[in-house]
Structures are given as structure tokens and as C-alpha cells.
Computed example of a mutant assay.
Amino acid sequence: MSLDPSLSLRSATVSRLRAAGCVFAEDEAELLFSAARSSAELDTMLTRRADGLPLEHVVGWAEFSGLRIAVDPGVFVPRRRTEFLVSQAVGLAGPGAVCVDLCCGSGAAGAVLLSAVQGAEVHASDIEPAAVRCARRNVEPRGGRVHEGDLFAPLPDSLHGRVEVLVANVPYVPSEEVALLPPEAREHEPLVALDGGADGLAVLRRVAAEAAHWLAPGGHLLVETSERQADRAVAVVADRGLTPRVVCSEELYATVVVATRD
């Protein structure tokens, strides 16, 4: 049962969050009230939040595309803009589609595909053990499978040439810009989920190098990138024989490259 706060507790909580620099203090307070079962638990959560822990790590979940996704400490928090990437993937996945969620983190994309695509066969992978444990909580109860390892390496060989939708939410922050990220990200999320190498495209190059071997004819690779990197990301996948296009959402400030195997 969640905490039913008094007016004074509500006001004190909002004030404490504001003092900690939380811009959306009122909204965060409501989430904390819904998650805390006692005043003592609320106080612990407030302390952790004031210490800079991401709100999603404090409450243990994130809302993503209408689902409540479990998010453990040390696991990459799914961003709202990534809902656009996943919506594009859902739109391309027919009933029974074979789908892969690379660099899956919490498994948010895989969970949505399983929930939104009738009969989908979904495999997810991540190199971080903490992410794999978390993703298994989100993906496997919905009927998917989660594998631990580097990109494609842990996937079953039976998926070669069969993947219709390949979602790869690769890290794309250039190494020298990681230090500019908000403390919530750079201090509490794994570096491997943030650092995209010198130009932010290092992991994308590795994915693109193998994607055609895994994709079915007409299958699609979808990756999130930044607006300023989009042209270079297009060139990376085109060099690997895929046919790319760029789709954007102004509302979510999201840029996605969709690359198709002919």
C-alpha cells in the first residue's frame, strides 16, 4: 500500500526535492508517495534522490510506452525519447515477427515489442550482467529470452537470416562529451551504455558490420542517434549494404535511422 501523505508532509517533500535541484519536484513527489509504504521509507527514498540517484533507481521502475519497466541500480534508465525508436519498431513488426533488442539495458524495447506485437519472438542481449538480470525481469515473463554477452555474440545461431526487426539502442555519446552528461547518468549508469567512442559511432559500426547476416530479406535495423550524427550514421549503415532512411520526432527530440536489408 502506498503512502497517503498529509498536506504538511507533501509540502515538506516538495521543498526537499526542490532544494536538491529537482526541477519537477511536484511530479517526483507524487511518484515517491506512490512507491513509499511508510514515512521512514519515504525519507530513505528522499535521501537517495537528494544524493543524485536517478528517480527511476529510487522507485525501482520507469514508465515506458505505457508499461512499468523495472529498473535496478546501475542499469541504464530508458529515456522517453527512445519511445519513438520503439514505436517505429512496433510499426514494422508484423504478427509473429522475429525481433532482437541489442544493448537492451532494462529490456524496455523488448518488453514493448512482446506486449504490442502479436506472437512476436523476441531476443534481447546486453554485455552488462546487472542489465541482463534486470531485463530478464521485464522480458522473460512476457515470453522473450535475454542473453548475456557482447552484441550478437550470445544470440542463438538459429536467428541468422531470420530477424525481421533489429532494435539497437547503441550508446552514441562521443567519449569526450560523457563528462558533460547530467550527474544522474554519468555517475549512476554504466559507462558502456553511454560512451559511443571518439565520434559516438563506434558501437553502431560494429552492429552495422554484422546486421545483414542476421536480418531476414526485407528486415530492418533501427538505431537511435542524435540529429547532428544522423548523416554519418546513415553512411555507416549504407556502407554495409543496408538501405537507410531517417525519421524524427520533434516532440520527443528523437532521431532514428531505419536501415533495411534488400
Rank of each mutant, 00 (worst) to 15 (best):
1 M>C: 06
2 S>M: 12
3 L>M: 08
7 L>P: 02
9 L>W: 10
16 R>L: 13
20 A>I: 02
21 G>S: 09
21 G>K: 06
23 V>S: 11
23 V>F: 12
24 F>E: 15
25 A>P: 04
26 E>L: 03
28 E>I: 08
32 L>D: 14
34 S>M: 12
35 A>L: 03
37 R>Y: 01
38 S>H: 06
39 S>I: 13
40 A>C: 00
41 E>A: 05
44 T>I: 12
48 R>N: 11
50 A>D: 05
52 G>K: 06
54 P>L: 07
54 P>I: 03
54 P>Y: 05
55 L>Y: 14
63 E>H: 15
65 S>K: 07
68 R>K: 13
70 A>Y: 02
70 A>R: 07
72 D>H: 14
73 P>Q: 05
77 V>W: 10
81 R>H: 12
83 E>L: 14
84 F>T: 01
84 F>W: 12
86 V>S: 07
88 Q>C: 13
88 Q>T: 07
90 V>P: 01
94 G>N: 05
95 P>H: 11
97 A>H: 07
97 A>C: 04
102 L>V: 08
104 C>N: 04
104 C>Y: 08
112 V>W: 07
112 V>Y: 13
112 V>G: 15
113 L>E: 05
115 S>I: 00
122 V>D: 09
128 E>C: 12
130 A>V: 03
134 C>N: 12
135 A>R: 03
138 N>C: 03
139 V>S: 01
141 P>F: 03
142 R>H: 02
151 L>D: 11
156 P>K: 10
162 R>K: 15
164 E>V: 00
164 E>G: 15
164 E>T: 03
165 V>K: 03
165 V>S: 06
169 N>A: 10
170 V>R: 05
173 V>D: 09
175 S>L: 03
176 E>N: 13
179 A>P: 02
182 P>M: 14
182 P>C: 07
185 A>C: 11
186 R>E: 07
194 L>D: 03
197 G>Q: 04
197 G>D: 03
202 A>L: 14
203 V>H: 01
204 L>C: 12
207 V>K: 01
208 A>T: 04
208 A>N: 10
212 A>C: 01
212 A>G: 14
215 L>I: 07
217 P>G: 14
219 G>M: 13
225 T>Y: 00
228 R>Y: 13
234 V>K: 03
235 A>T: 08
242 L>R: 00
244 P>W: 07
245 R>L: 14
245 R>I: 01
249 S>E: 09
249 S>R: 01
250 E>V: 12
255 T>N: 02
255 T>A: 01
257 V>L: 04
258 V>S: 06
262 D>I: 06
262 D>T: 15
